[in-house]
């Protein structure tokens, strides 16, 4: 009487009742919103160069710092996660996402104290990026050195 449905058949069966992720809309939203973050950073870069009479490289560092401060404050105000829900990955991919992951972890674990809470958990999400980012820098640095000599 009872039909036996294998695990594979079940995975196929549930697909019928599962909404497909709106990949195209998400990609467009991310492209446009992420592009706006890039555009405003570029404007800021020019402005910093102009206002403070800085070389481009140092102006770039100031832009990154500005984005980190804004993302961290918005995270603390509880606004950033709502923006992510609306703008998808546009704010997660740039440096703002990195700052957001660190600030949110620090906020979350402050109740467990400065050492075992914030200290032990602040890089809970960002640790992966730091570790593999550093490894990647070494690998690509060596490749660059071998190919174009530094």
């Amino acid at each position: 009487m009872v039909i036996i449905m294998s695990d594979e058949q079940y995975q196929k069966f549930i697909k019928k009742y599962t909404p497909k992720p709106k990949k195209l809309i998400n990609a467009i939203t991310t492209f446009v919103a992420g592009g706006l973050v890039g555009l405003s950073s570029e404007i800021l870069l020019e402005l910093y160069e102009f206002w403070f009479n800085l070389p481009r490289k140092e102006s770039g560092v100031l832009v990154i710092l500005t984005l980190i401060v804004i993302a961290s404050i918005l995270t603390a105000l509880g606004v950033f996660d709502i923006c992510v829900t609306k703008l998808k990955s546009a704010l997660i991919i740039p440096i703002t996402g990195f700052a957001h992951s660190i600030t949110s972890a620090a906020l979350e674990y402050r109740t467990e104290g400065l050492v075992l809470g914030i200290g032990a958990n602040i890089f809970k999400l960002a640790g992966t990026v730091i570790l593999y980012g550093t490894v990647a820098v070494y690998i690509f640095g060596i490749i660059r050195l071998l190919i174009i000599g530094g």
Binding site: T75, D81, I82, C83, T85, I92, A105, L107
Partner: peptide, 17 residues
């Protein structure tokens, strides 16, 4: 959220399900 997922203020796009 803290127990099972990410820090509560951390936002990630979630599917409708």
């Amino acid at each position: 959220e803290k127990q099972y997922r990410n820090p509560t203020e951390y936002g990630t796009p979630k599917p409708e399900t």
